[in-house]
Design a protein around this nucleic acid. Structure first.
Lengths: 207, 207
DNA sequence: GGGCGACATGAACGATCGTTCCTCGGTGCT
DNA sequence: AGCACCGAGGAACGATCGTTCATGTCGCCC
């Protein structure tokens, strides 16, 4: 049990071994990369046969696409929920959005790593759909920044650029986070919320 | 000519086709990923034969390692030069370090993409050496932050964490930068210097 | 009870992979 | 003149890849 995710990304989907295959694919792609992992690896991890994978997914690419779709759907849902539960001011909303995002990165570290590293191997409409999904999640942050700039809470120019910088920062958490690290999950989330608000040049109440 | 780098990463090394092979490997790994690109692809891009690659590099892994070593050496040199030419205060040094780093990311976008995406496929001492190289470059930023915190210029807690956040931000520039984008090379560098100083909670002279 | 769709398997196909082997022209040194 | 060595290329090796095929077993519905 040396996993980087204690909770499986995909719960039961109501269709045979589908969830097991998706979780196995995430583990395989995460460990060896999309091109480095073979369908035989995935089958072995899922505890099924090679040919059976093709009863669920028509190709290796589609399998990757489905894994990434599940990951981003869960991420987007978590962030939206956090923003909805936050206050009306941009500062509170940004803080909760960042905290939810970092929380997901910690909970589903492998999924985030695979999401950012292996999207490039998708093509055609699978690729387009995933990029659209990711853009939608990023737009949540962009909208909050715009609200904050319009209301005078943030003083950064170029809302979209600042949002992208913040997301770069929190995405990278997946590349270095270790559960045994100095900061707890909550402290890590709070620290990045502070970085985000500082970057946005919000007036600093802290210290 | 749709390259993402107008200047070759490796100039002549004084040994036959070595530089051509290194640049070809960078292009191939960048376009298809380490496992997606074949040694035949590299040979074709370098304009030589498959077997001749092994007169220069003992394996595909060592070829990747050499490419990444060249990239990080040039990056580190540029940042060190910029810091040495900057003023003595941490604010100036951080600004120039970020500007130099972003400048390199723009000039050698493909090298930065390959550096961050394909290091994972290195093993053993090749991997260890490259991680050490990267850590040395990151330490430049960490030292500046520490200097700034000690001298009262920055108010962020946890110097090393803040430095890592800044580097995450500038590294990610390689994933989205396009030459035809809204900001020029210099504007992009300046904007990220501002983000970095804001994140460090430096007193804001701007605006 | 007969057929049908969903799930499962082992074997096989053709393609491609990293690497090695063998050969050979050229260059410089003794 | 002879020889060692470096750079270069064609052919081949064994392994592994994604995908397909043929076959089989269930449970479910008319």
């Amino acid at each position: 049990m040396n996993d980087r995710s204690s909770v499986l990304l995909v719960a039961d989907t109501g269709r045979g071994n589908e969830a097991a295959i998706l979780n196995a694919a995430l583990a395989a792609f995460g460990a060896q990369g999309f091109n480095g992992a073979s369908m035989r690896d995935v089958a072995k991890r899922a505890g099924t046969s090679l040919s059976n994978l093709y009863n669920y997914f028509p190709s290796k690419s589609h399998l990757l696409a489905e894994v990434l779709r599940h990951a981003n759907a869960e991420l987007e849902a978590r962030v939206r929920r956090a923003v909805a539960d936050a206050g009306d001011d941009a500062t509170s909303r940004m803080r909760e959005a960042v905290r939810a995002y970092v929380g997901f990165v910690v909970d589903q570290q492998l999924a985030m790593l695979v999401s950012t590293a292996e999207v490039r191997y998708l093509q055609g409409e699978d690729r387009a759909r995933l990029v659209a999904d990711r853009d939608r999640t990023q737009a949540i942050f962009g909208d909050i920044v715009e609200q904050g700039v319009a209301g005078g809470e943030f003083r950064t120019p170029h809302a979209a650029d600042a949002a992208r910088a913040i997301l770069s920062m929190v995405n990278a958490v997946a590349t270095w986070y270790r559960p045994e690290g100095r900061l707890s999950r909550g402290q890590l989330a709070e620290q990045h919320a502070r970085y985000a608000l500082a970057l946005l040049e919000a007036p600093l109440p802290h210290v």
